[in-house]
Deep mutational scan, measured.
Amino acid sequence: KLPPGWEKRMSRSSGRVYYFNHITNASQWERPSGNSSSG
């Protein structure tokens, strides 16, 4: 399961899957890690 705020999306241009955070408006190709504590 993804960390809070993150969701899986697909890029229309490349067709690749990326991850988008609707809370911080951040996007990245790598899967966000939800196990590590923020610090």
Rank of each mutant, 00 (worst) to 15 (best):
Asn25Trp: 08
Thr24Ile: 04
Arg9Thr: 03
Ser14Val: 06
Ser38Gly: 11
Pro32Cys: 01
Tyr18Pro: 00
Ala26Trp: 09
Lys1Ser: 13
Ser13Gln: 10
Ser33Asn: 12
Ile23Phe: 12
Val17Lys: 03
Asn21Asp: 03
Ile23Leu: 11
Ser36Tyr: 07
Gly15Val: 03
Trp29Gln: 04
Pro4Phe: 13
Ser27Arg: 15
Thr24Asn: 05
Asn25Gly: 15
Gly39Tyr: 07
Arg12Thr: 11
Ser13Lys: 15
Ser33Gly: 12
Lys8Gln: 13
Lys8Ala: 14
His22Thr: 15
Phe20Trp: 09
Asn25His: 14
Glu30Tyr: 07
Gly5Tyr: 06
Lys1Gln: 14
Asn25Val: 03
Ser11Leu: 13
Arg16Val: 05
Ile23Lys: 06
Tyr18Ser: 01
Asn35Val: 12
Gly39Trp: 07
Gly15Trp: 03
Trp29Met: 06
Gln28Arg: 05
Arg31His: 12
Glu7Tyr: 06
Pro3Lys: 02
Gly39Met: 11
Arg9Ala: 04
Gly39Glu: 12
Lys1Pro: 15
Ser38Asn: 12
Lys8Thr: 09
Arg16Ile: 06
Ser38Met: 12
Ser33Thr: 15
Ser38Ala: 11
Lys8Pro: 08
Thr24Trp: 04
Pro3Trp: 03
Arg31Asp: 08
Trp6Lys: 00
Val17Glu: 08
Pro3Glu: 04
Ala26Phe: 09
Gln28Thr: 06
Pro4Tyr: 12
Val17Ala: 07
Ser14Arg: 07
Asn21Arg: 01
Ser36Glu: 14
Gly5Phe: 07
Met10Trp: 15
Val17His: 07
Gln28Met: 05
Pro32Asn: 01
Val17Trp: 13
Asn21Pro: 00
Gly39His: 10
Arg16Asp: 03
Ser14Met: 07
Lys1Val: 14
Asn21Thr: 01
Arg16Ala: 06
Thr24Gln: 03
Tyr18Ala: 00
Pro3Ile: 02
Tyr19Arg: 00
Asn21His: 04
Ser11Cys: 15
Gly39Ile: 11
Tyr19Asn: 00
Leu2Arg: 02
Gly5Gln: 04
Gly15Glu: 04
Gly15Tyr: 03
His22Lys: 14
Ile23His: 09
Pro3Gly: 05
Lys1Thr: 14
Glu30Val: 06
Leu2Gly: 02
Arg31Lys: 09
Met10Ala: 07
Gly39Cys: 15
Gly5Leu: 02
Ser27Leu: 15
Ser14Thr: 14
His22Met: 10
Thr24Val: 03
Trp29Leu: 07
Ser37Asn: 12
Ser13Ile: 14
Met10Val: 15
Arg16Asn: 04
Pro4Ile: 08
Lys8Trp: 07
Ser37Gly: 10
Gly34Ser: 13
Gly15Arg: 07
Ile23Ser: 06
Leu2His: 02
Gly15Gln: 06
Gln28Phe: 04
Glu30Arg: 07
Ser11Tyr: 09
Glu7His: 10
Asn21Ile: 02
Pro4Asp: 09
Arg9Gly: 02
Gly5Val: 02
Arg9His: 06
Ile23Arg: 06
Ser11Met: 11
Gly34His: 13
Gly39Gln: 11
Asn25Arg: 15
Val17Met: 08
His22Asn: 11
Ser14His: 09
Ser13His: 13
Ala26Ser: 09
Gly39Ser: 11
Val17Asn: 04
